[in-house]
């Protein structure tokens, strides 16, 4: 499964490749964000980049200086989100929500 890499069109390299281990930031912003509370500070695996989009956190403030970022589909094990469960949850996350996960 791979979406067409629209990310390749503007010459900027993606920070994460499919299979990269990442950790979501553990922030708690006072503004709009598309990183749900249940997925903050969690370890996951990048499925693939999905294409660049204006960062919703900034765009939601009606600002004109909105950065455009890669969005990644990231897979999380239920056990890593909730401490139990056998299923996976996939979220689409802006690059600035993600950090390298040191093994």
């Amino acid at each position: 499964m791979s979406l067409r890499a629209s990310s390749m069109t503007d010459g900027r390299a993606d920070r994460y490749a499919p299979g990269a281990r990442v950790r979501t930031v553990h922030h708690d912003p006072p503004h709009h964000t598309r990183l749900p509370r249940y997925a903050r500070g969690k370890r996951g695996t990048v499925i693939e980049p999905e294409g660049r989009a204006p960062l919703a956190d900034v765009r939601a403030q009606g600002r004109t200086d909105c950065p455009v970022e890669q969005v990644y589909a990231v897979r999380f094990a239920a056990r890593d989100l909730w401490g139990e469960g056998e299923h996976d949850v996939v979220l689409d996350l802006f690059e600035s929500y993600l950090e390298d996960d040191q093994p």
């Binding site: 709009h32 765009r59 939601a60 403030q61 009606g62």
Partner: peptide, 12 residues
């Protein structure tokens, strides 16, 4: 007049 992210923000 506004964008979709501003709309979601306002709902929230």
């Amino acid at each position: 007049v506004y964008n979709l992210d501003e709309f979601r923000d306002a709902v929230e």
